[in-house]
Write a protein that binds this DNA or RNA. Structure first.
Lengths: 185, 185
DNA sequence: ATCTACTATATAAATTATTATATAGAATAC
DNA sequence: GTATTCTATATAATAATTTATATAGTAGAT
C-alpha cells in the first residue's frame, strides 16, 4: 500500500524508474525497501490508473529513459494517504523475531555470534546516518531550525533514524553484556 | 519468509492457530504483524511440508481445536534461519514514509495534527510496553540478571521495544516543537 | 580489444500478505 | 431471550513482494 504513495510523493519531481531506485537505496532505505522488479510494474500500473504521466527521453548515458511525474489525481491520492492518519503497529523487524527465538540455538557461542554480527551491522548503519546528518549541518549553520521547507520533513526522518539506530546499538551492547554475565555463571 | 520461522519457533510448545494469533496480538506485536487469514494457510503449508504436526482435540469452549507442534525437521529450519545471521535493512515503517512527505499537505494545521496523532499513539504503545516490563520486574527481583533461560531472549526484545518506542516519543515531541517554532515565524 | 561497472528497463514465476467473507459453538451481559 | 463477544477454523479474491532472469547501451580500465 505504501510503495504506491511513496512513488506518488517522490515523483512530484520528475524522475526515471532508475532514479527512483537510487532514492530507495540511499534515502528511503531508512524506512522502506523496494526492488526494481517491484518499482517498474508499479510505475506502469500507476500510469495506467492516471496517477502518473510518462515521457520517454534520450539518456546521456545508456538506453532511453522514461520520465514519470505525479498527476493532479496522483497528488490527491497522496494527500488522502497523509490525512488518513499515521500508520503504526504494522512494523516487521525480522532481527527482533530472530532475537526472540535465540534460546533455540544449542550454545551460547552461536547466540553471542548473532549479537556481535548485529552490533557490527547496527554500528555501520548508525555511522552512515550520522554522516548524512553531518553533511546537512554543514549546509545549515543553525540546523535544524533553518532547514528549507523542502528539506524539513525529510530531515525529521533522518533525525529519528539516528536516534532509533543509536538506541539499537546501545541495546545490542547491553544484551551482549547480559549474555556474557550469564555465561560466566 | 519470517512468519514461517516465527511459527516454527513458537510451536516448539504445542498451540492452536487461535493461540498463535493471541501471541501475535499480545507479544509479537512489538516486531511482527500477522492476520489469521495468513496464519491458518501457513500452518497448513508447514504441516504439509513436514515441519509441523497437527492433532485435533475437543475444546472446552467453542469448536474443536487443531494443536500444532514443530517437528525435528521444523527445528532444523528454525536453527538454519537463526544461524544465517541477523536480517536487517528490510524494515518498512509506513509512518516514517508519511512523515517524509508531510510537506505535500497544504497547511501546517494538517501537518501538526498528523504529528499529534502520532505522539498520542506512540505514548500509548510505550505505556503498554512499560507495563509488561513492570510486571516482569515483579516476578524477578534482580531483573534482568535473574531471568529464566526461557524468558531471557523474549525479554531482550521487550527491552528494545521500550527503548525504541521511547525514542519515538521523544522524537515526535521534538518534531512538534520544531514545527511550532516554524509556524510562529 | 575485452572486461567490468554502471545506466536503464522489463517480465515470468513463485511466494507472501491483505481484505473480505463464511461458519458455528459457548459464554456473558442486558 | 437476544445481542454481543469470544473461541475456533477457514477460503476466495486480490494485492504486494521476492527471486530469477533478460536485454542493451555507455564509460573506463587493462
Amino acid at each position: 500500500m505504501s510503495l504506491k504513495h511513496i512513488l506518488l510523493g517522490v515523483l512530484q519531481r520528475p524522475k526515471s524508474g532508475y532514479d527512483v531506485k537510487q532514492m530507495f537505496d540511499h534515502v528511503f532505505s531508512n524506512f522502506w525497501a523496494a526492488k526494481l522488479s517491484q518499482i517498474y510494474p508499479q510505475l506502469k500500473k500507476l500510469t495506467d490508473e492516471g496517477l502518473l504521466t510518462v515521457q520517454e527521453t534520450p539518456s546521456d548515458k545508456g538506453p532511453n529513459k522514461k520520465i514519470y511525474q505525479t498527476t493532479a489525481a496522483g497528488k490527491l491520492a497522496l494527500i488522502a494517504w497523509l490525512t488518513d492518519g499515521p500508520m503504526i503497529h504494522t512494523e516487521k523487524l525480522a532481527y527482533l523475531a530472530q532475537t526472540y527465538f535465540l534460546g533455540s540455538l544449542d550454545n551460547d557461542q552461536q547466540r553471542l555470534k548473532f549479537l556481535q554480527d548485529l552490533l557490527m551491522r547496527m554500528r555501520e548503519w548508525h555511522q552512515a546516518l550520522v554522516s548524512i546528518q553531518v553533511q546537512t549541518k554543514l549546509r545549515y549553520p543553525n540546523y535544524p531550525h533553518d532547514l528549507s521547507e523542502e528539506e524539513f520533513y525529510p530531515n525529521l526522518t533522518l533525525m529519528l533514524g539516528v536516534k532509533k539506530v543509536g538506541a539499537n546499538v546501545e541495546w545490542v551492547e547491553e544484551s551482549i553484556e547480559l549474555l556474557r554475565a550469564r555465561m560466566n555463571e
